[in-house]
Design a protein around this nucleic acid. Structure first.
Lengths: 256, 256
DNA sequence: GTTGGTTGTCTATAAAACTATACAAATCAG
DNA sequence: CTGATTTGTATAGTTTTATAGACAACCAAC
């Protein structure tokens, strides 16, 4: 049988199989039965030994995706992902409203540095202008969801770190710095295997995937005030783009 | 030195290291030098044998991320990703305008089936209503970028497949079916390791990552006409959300 | 209780990944 | 040219993955 599993690829067979089964579950392949095929059937399907399948199922069980019972088989468990809205008024805690009991931002580190080329461009500053760098972890109900780095014009937002430490929220700290309201200008979304630091910061296992976003916020006058690079644990978060009834864009045919 | 590399994780050490270096490059860590540290230095940093580092570098070189020359070291190569805009007027070919010479949609398969629960909800149809399913591959300059499944109301869009085959574009085919214009209502974005089928359809290696989007388009009257599930090769595509100056949302604080 | 189908565990073997060490070949600075 | 640095190649040993087969334990249906 066509298996499609790659050997010598740097990813163990059992992990490839686990990823495949996970994707199939996501596509609703097993929704009707509510359970997976037997280990023997999966072994035949992927053309591997049953032990290898068992290792894949054990990994899925560890992650709470399935549960397997001796004599019965392995059944699907209900999954829930937090949906994180991306829009003109994207904000962390408010965006999770209703989905989680407790959203919190933890501030890891603050530093002032000369702006890199990219940061300077995003914030419309001269290169090497001093910028404030803020490292944060966003968590919901005690589980880390995102790890982000934020940059601000150091001259304009010198007081920001103190306010952040006090209020525990960037939005509130910005308000204290005179930015009553702000808007998300753009968000670039990418994805990659979780790096070592991602795994440490977000408590992920090797082989996990992160959603990577680079975004820019602007104040009421349209002046960019904040550039952020965030890494979301992809198995815990979904990014959601909702288009307002009358917003116009100039892009490109739904064939994606 | 703290390495953070996980053994027995189902992902080979060299691949974890390659992913890590790739992420570091993406974060601009090596921009100043324009080249990576020596193999010996990397081996020390990750606390592995130099051979293991070499295998990681070989993988990065295969993917065109770096180039290594005996006696000199390994230098970064310039990278470019296609940016795919997501907005109210998201369309495939137009969205890539200027970035690529030739964008094309290949139609793999067409079928009519009873709507699943999810599809019926998205299209505001009664469950089990017959829906048209379209399987496509989006490519730019001969390289596959996305693999998508589209669903339409079969009654309203019976003629769609014929028009698609003729024009090679869903947008044009919709116009021929009386939908002069349409808008993207929502996009859910997720990410996951590429599954076997993803790798086959998009020509990816094991360990690759896909961006997963589920989106709904509506006609001028706001009636949902199309639901799509797309899988983008994450190392070739970036999704871009740009917010129009005056669109309003109700969500949540940039701390992401 | 019995039967058929399923998961759990054990032992043994083969293959691949990783380590350790040594030295050759290329580049660069002086 | 010379020497220091860096990548390329080779060999051998250890650890981890994957396979193979056999059988026990468990569940559900009859």
């Amino acid at each position: 049988m066509e298996s499609g599993i790659e050997r010598r690829s740097g990813v163990a067979l059992w992990r490839q199989i686990a990823d495949d089964i996970r994707a199939a579950i996501g596509n609703g392949v097993y929704d009707a039965a509510g359970k997976l095929p037997t280990e023997a059937a999966l072994a035949a399907q992927f053309d591997v030994n049953r032990h290898t399948v068992r290792q894949a199922l054990a990994a899925l069980a560890r992650d709470g995706v399935v549960r397997t019972v001796q004599g019965r088989g392995t059944e699907l468990l209900p999954r829930a992902r937090v949906s994180y809205p991306i829009g003109a008024r994207t904000r962390f805690s408010a965006g999770l409203g209703g989905q989680v009991a407790k959203a919190a931002t933890r501030f890891l580190e603050t530093a002032t540095e000369p702006a890199s080329e990219e940061v300077a461009r995003a914030l419309a500053l001269a290169p090497q202008t001093p910028v404030l760098r803020l490292e944060t972890v966003g968590a919901a109900d005690g589980t880390a969801l995102s790890r982000a780095t934020h940059w601000f014009d150091a001259a304009r937002f010198a007081e920001l770190p103190a306010h952040c430490a006090q209020s525990g929220s960037i939005t509130h700290a910005l308000k204290a710095c005179g930015v009553g309201d702000y808007k998300r200008l753009s968000t670039e979304i990418s994805a990659a295997p979780a790096s070592r630091t991602d795994r440490e910061d977000l408590g992920l296992q090797a082989g996990a995937v992160v959603l990577l976003t680079t975004s820019v916020n602007a104040d009421q006058d349209g002046v960019p005030i904040q550039m952020s690079r965030s890494r979301f644990a992809a198995d815990r978060v979904t990014l959601s783009v909702r288009n307002a009834p009358e917003s116009g864009d100039r892009d490109g045919n739904g064939d994606g």
